[in-house]
Design a protein around this nucleic acid. Structure first.
Lengths: 349, 349
DNA sequence: TTGAAAGCGGTACCAA
DNA sequence: TTGGTACCGCTTTCAA
């Protein structure tokens, strides 16, 4: 009894406590915290009458259990993370949408992190990994060893649009065959001289698209460009390419690594009096909303599904339903629009 | 002494502990947890030699401090939340981008929640509120009383694109004057009969746009429609409106509550042989990427800045730098493009 | 059915 | 400079 007295030689730091805790509820209801906890969890080891008293106390005190205390005790965060290079652009937003949607359904909150090109990206990701039960990592936002470190800590990781890493799941979209189908379509339309805009060292996706592009051209006997025209993923990058293209002489087609690039390029070309597709055909990748309105031929990717799939894969790992890694590849689809119209020479025949 | 013995009548549940704790590090380094904690926090009350031993132990054990333990002790989450009706569409993505960017800079993680139209939205938001130090809430995703409840719990809230609530900060964009400038521009182009598509009861933004629209028309002496043509915010909603519009007779202009609506409407009209802007002019709102490529006249809103602003407002409240609520209104800008070309009659003069 | 108490993994006060 | 230890708020044995 005097034990209780001895127990608090140290005062509470704040005399007026802001938050109502489970202990307050227990005291108010005249029961132990264990009972309150049980009532909270809906355990059937609580007498109905007792439960009523507890509920009343909870109501009266406007008590909300602390997620922190709960998580610490349960040793789980009930939250997943997702890491992006950059949330701008329509592409990532859709993936996050799918991810969040599924995660929410599974009772998990979602923490997002955009690494931009911050120096501190690695640390930020490691920090994030300490706040979640599972982590989705997009593209080359994080170094391989950081991912490995996270996996080793026991946090399930699913990689999106990135080459596989030991111990981590992955979801990607099909690129090689899609690139080939783009090339084949263009060839059928009479186009021959094709350039590829994008930087294969930027991402696995671009590398695969470039490989598929070259492969299909080689197989058809058409001229295969030595290298890509390097560029980022933004409209501005496309605009910059346009200038060089006009100066160096136009090919029949410019296959771009993504839609924003293709759209920026097209606009810049038009400003310089180059007609699309009349003078040069242009294709993109992703099928973002603007591509539809710009009439851009592109490859549609199931972004939202990719996000959802990632969330589900993580859930399976977290809940222990699956332990072997899994690697999914989602199919993509060529969407032919106006920007790749038949080559003039072909059309004249 | 025997006290220590008595202290563990209860075994650890897991014999092989997965996670390395601060106690392990302390033991390994031959110091107390207090010292490890100090070393961790970079306190200068640690002897260099001691610090070295601690660092070595941390390194060797690959110790990472638990965010949960830390948060519980520090009584702060170091995380902010943001609540959306729906993350789809380019609009919200940009706001999140700005929010995350600033929050990350301020050392806070970001939890996102899309309420969609889930029944359980209120509970989900309340749950989220328990995981963060501050919360940004978008539009009418959450009932007023839920917001009030969260504010009362002491969690700073900033409302975005929503009418003010006692005790919460807010960031909005200017709507009334912008709507008036749209109308004035259209009037100057010779358009007279204007319809407004959107549901004012959907959001504060739409209500204000509708009010500005009516006000400007009334002031000009032009015909003021009795009511809006109700519609949601998606392309599909626009398409549905198109059918009715054609059946009921076209006005000179259709002013839409957002871009997606306007774009969906335009496409559907074109499919029915109605020319934009020849037969009817169309305007949108937001200036999303697709609007540029579709040549849609619209009102540009600083979405990204709105997100960033919200994050900063929360930070000020959380850190106690400010206690009185603040309400920011961001300026918007009319962007004239092809879709609202001069009215035919006007053009012929 | 209930309660006491030992965690979960840190932080920070107090005393040494 | 350090160590001991009482928290932070909740969950879950174990015993009654």
């Amino acid at each position: 009894m005097d034990n209780a007295e001895q127990k608090s030689p140290q005062r509470r730091r704040t005399s007026a406590r802001a938050t109502v805790t489970i202990r307050d509820v227990a005291r108010h209801a005249g029961v132990s915290v264990a009972t309150v906890s049980r009532a909270l969890r809906g355990s059937d080891l609580v007498h109905p009458a007792t439960r009523e008293r507890v509920d009343a106390a909870i109501e009266e005190l406007r008590f909300t259990p602390s997620q922190l205390g709960r998580s610490l005790a349960e040793r789980r965060h009930a939250a997943n993370g997702i890491v992006f290079p950059d949330l701008s652009g329509p592409y990532y937003a859709d993936v996050v949408l799918g991810y969040e949607e599924v995660a929410a359904t599974l009772g998990r909150s979602v923490l997002i992190l955009s690494t931009h090109n911050r120096e501190s990206a690695d640390e930020m990701v490691l920090e994030l990994a300490g706040r979640v039960d599972g982590l989705a990592v997009f593209g080359r936002t994080v170094h391989d060893d950081v991912v490995a470190e996270i996996v080793q800590r026991g946090v399930p990781v699913v990689l999106m649009a990135r080459t596989e890493i030991e111990g981590a799941d992955s979801v990607r979209t099909e690129n090689v065959a899609a690139a080939a189908s783009v090339v084949e379509h263009l060839l059928a339309d009479g186009h021959r001289r094709m350039s590829f805009v994008g930087d294969p060292s930027d991402s696995t996706d671009v590398a695969e698209r470039w490989a598929g592009f070259r492969g299909a051209l080689a197989q058809s006997g058409a001229e295969v460009p030595e290298r890509t025209i390097p560029a980022g993923f933004k409209e501005d990058d496309g605009a910059r390419v346009a200038a060089d293209l006009v100066a160096d002489g136009l090919p029949d087609v410019v296959v771009c690594a993504n839609d924003e690039l293709a759209l920026g390029l097209s606009v810049a070309l038009a400003e310089q009096g180059v007609q699309v597709p009349g003078d040069v055909a242009v294709t993109g990748w992703d099928d973002v909303m603007a591509a539809r309105y710009a009439g851009l031929t592109t490859v549609r990717q199931p972004m939202r599904e990719m996000g959802g799939r990632a969330a589900r894969m993580l859930d399976a790992r977290i809940s222990g339903d699956r332990s072997e890694p899994r690697h999914d590849v989602l199919t993509t689809q060529l969407v032919v629009r106006h920007s790749c119209g038949p080559h003039p020479k072909e059309a004249h025949r």
